[in-house]
Amino acid sequence: MTAQTAKKQAFVRELLGRSDYAIISEIVEPGTKVLDLGCGEGELLEWLAANKGVQGRGVEISGVKVQHAIGRGVSVYQGDIDEGLADYPDQAFDYVILSQTLQETLYPRHVLQEMLRVGRRVIVAFPNFGHWTVRYSMLKSGRAPRTKLFPYEWYESPNIHFLTVQDFEELVALEGLVIERRYFLSGKSKVTLLPNLRAEVAVYLVRR
């Protein structure tokens, strides 16, 4: 492998301004049924419907975002992820997506279990609290870390469960789940070496 192709492979394009969306869009098979938890204004679901013939549904807590999502033709339900999954029957979806939201849920372990009850596979993307800038920020300041990835004051942060790549892998092992694919991102690039230290965002494809 030449240096040039290696560099090319390491480059992750963005979708809708987000590199985790680019990866999710590659994972999702055409014509499948997808549930997007915390789907915002439904941009990803709209893209998946238009480009992959996906049947998408979304859950979003913000009423204004739900209005916009419905206005663009996406079927979104205004509700809370922590309790909102309970209504769906078992294995109703091919994929359940949780993008950058696991750290905001009250009961992340329960959410993961519920996602795998409702969907055959789950795609989880989360910011890695183990990134070296976070560790350095905390070590240096002695206060709750504030970085590019975690820009909030502790009292304003929506993030209530900080987790690292290693933490997630351990929870997956504890639950006896299978990791089908894992991606680590730093900016727009893929990370292969020392992901727990170097990845800003991790994306996992997991099944039972």
């Binding site: 009423g63 739900v66 209005q67 079927s75 205004q78 509700g79 209504d87 769906y88 029957p89």
Partner: peptide
Amino acid sequence: TVRALRARNCDVAYVELL
């Protein structure tokens, strides 16, 4: 109504407008 439709895996969008 929405919960019952979701339990049937129906395609349903819902919002409470202010």
